[in-house]
């Protein structure tokens, strides 16, 4: 009983410490200029782009998650925090012509400083199409910031993404798991088959 209490106390302290560190993470020296430009473009502060300050309520649909201001991302994410095996992701969406869209992927290093991994800022043209490929930092947790400036509104969304090595995926795939019996599979319809695929690998498509 006592052991358990101490354990949870330690865990709590560690979590608190981590979250307080995260709140004050500054960018590393080399990235300060880029970081500054990005924040200025969207009138944001450092705290604004911390995941901890941008937690959304659970239960948002993937459509809601993928709508940032007037930008509708067509291949967005279904959760705010997730893991993926991907090394990059193309983000495609449509917004209002003239609005400015910014993407940034940053990680936090051991000194609790922000390190920019990839970034892009684009003003949407007549078609309103936005299309950009971002690279993920391999095998670690990172934050993706999507910011949109349209008219005078500024909207942002922060995702916490953990990348996993491809080897893990291959290992997982080689374990055979039967979720449903053969008889059930015969009746598999399109929707349920898709669910089944999702079940099989609980990660972002």
């Amino acid at each position: 009983m006592l052991k358990q209490f101490i354990k949870s106390c330690i865990l709590f302290t560690v979590l608190m410490a981590l979250s307080s560190f995260a709140a004050y993470a500054e960018p590393i020296e080399a990235d300060k200029a880029v970081f500054g430009t990005f924040l200025n473009t969207f009138n944001l502060t450092e705290q604004n782009i911390e995941y901890a300050n941008n937690k959304l309520e659970a239960g948002m649909t993937s459509q809601e998650l993928s709508t940032v201001g007037t930008l509708k991302i067509s291949n967005g994410f279904s959760r705010q925090v997730f893991s993926t095996f991907a090394s990059d992701k193309s983000i495609v969406g449509q917004g209002q012509s003239g609005s400015v869209v910014g993407l940034m992927v940053y990680t936090v290093n051991s000194n609790q400083q922000k390190v920019i991994h990839s970034h892009a800022i684009k003003t949407l043209g007549a078609s309103g199409m936005f299309s950009e490929t971002i690279n993920y930092a391999p095998s670690r947790t990172q934050y993706l910031v999507i910011a949109v400036k349209d008219n005078q509104n500024i909207t942002r969304r922060i995702f916490e993404i953990t990348t996993k090595a491809m080897e893990t995926k291959l290992k997982l795939e080689n374990i055979e798991i039967r979720f449903v019996s053969e008889e059930k599979q015969v009746n598999t319809s399109v929707e349920s088959m898709y669910d089944w695929l999702r079940l099989k690998s609980n990660i972002e498509f």
Binding site: G125, A126, S127, G128, S131
Partner: peptide, 17 residues
Amino acid sequence: AKYEDVLDKVIVEAGTL
């Protein structure tokens, strides 16, 4: 090649979305 830039030009040239 950035297809979205081409789309912008197409929309401007066609004058309609």
